[in-house]
């Protein structure tokens, strides 16, 4: 499998506090990689370095390197906006804009310069289809995005992210605010999307990682403890701490 994201010796500090310690890993293209570990171990922090959303937090400092494709994303010549177009993100709480369903999906392409109505229509339909939402909303695209259910809102947010044509989709506990049925739908969706996108998901739910991911990374206190194929990590972990965690002895 081709490597798309290559992280080398990454340290991240929030002021004095070191949240990531010498993290290194290679994330393969067109597969699902899951980050697991107890709360506060740095999963979200690492995920948010991949689209540089940590830039906004004052006092954050980074050492080491992250390459996405051929680009060193913390290099001086990198345009953060271009990076974020390529590396999309879905958040823990569904966060659609208080606009119509259509306008939510069209938002990204519109602001990136697509103006023709028929092009936008096409992008909106394609994205909603990819997010497995089209059939449910196609008859009321003008309705407020806040009027649909939480699970639908989260798929709308996925559609919104897909509409700017990313290569990577980051999902930070994207199902933790949803009911089991909606969760299942998003897991199925992730399975379909991995043929076209590289997916990195944070989950607090080991069973979810076991169900959907190809690779799993286990974190503890800002360090990578173990990184392996999901099947291997869950059936035959190398590290004692991984074993303790997946057998539910802590976390």
């Amino acid at each position: 499998m081709q490597v798309l994201i290559d992280i080398k010796n990454l340290d991240l500090f929030y002021g004095e506090f070191q949240a990531l310690k010498k993290v290194s890993m290679s994330i393969p293209e067109k597969a699902i990689t899951a980050f697991i570990g107890p709360s506060g171990c740095g999963k979200s922090t690492l995920l948010r370095t991949l689209n540089r959303m940590n830039d906004m937090i004052p006092g954050t400092r980074i050492e080491g390197s992250i390459r996405v494709g051929d680009t060193d994303i913390y290099g001086s010549d990198v345009d953060v906006e271009t990076l974020r177009k390529k590396v999309g993100m879905v958040f823990q709480q569904p966060n659609p804009f208080p606009k119509s369903i259509y306008d939510n999906v069209a938002y990204g392409p519109r602001l990136h310069g697509v103006t023709k109505k028929h092009e936008l229509d096409e992008i909106v339909e394609k994205s909603l289809r990819s997010a497995a939402l089209w059939d449910e909303v196609k008859d009321h695209l003008k309705r407020s995005a806040l009027s649909i259910s939480g699970g639908q809102q989260q798929r709308l947010c996925i559609a919104r992210a897909l509409a700017v044509n990313p290569d990577v989709l980051l999902m930070d506990e994207a199902t933790s605010a949803l009911d089991p049925i909606s969760t299942l739908k998003i897991e199925e969706l992730a399975q379909e999307l991995k043929d076209r996108y590289t997916i990195v998901m944070v989950t607090h739910n080991m069973h979810q990682a076991a169900r959907v991911s190809n690779q799993t990374v286990f974190f503890l206190n800002g360090e990578v403890i173990e990184y392996a194929d999901t099947e291997k990590l869950f059936s035959n972990p190398t590290d004692q701490r991984t074993e303790d965690y997946i057998s539910g002895r802590f976390g």
Partner: peptide, 9 residues
Amino acid sequence: EASLALGIS
């Protein structure tokens, strides 16, 4: 964040 994460300035 939703908007910034789409690469919007």
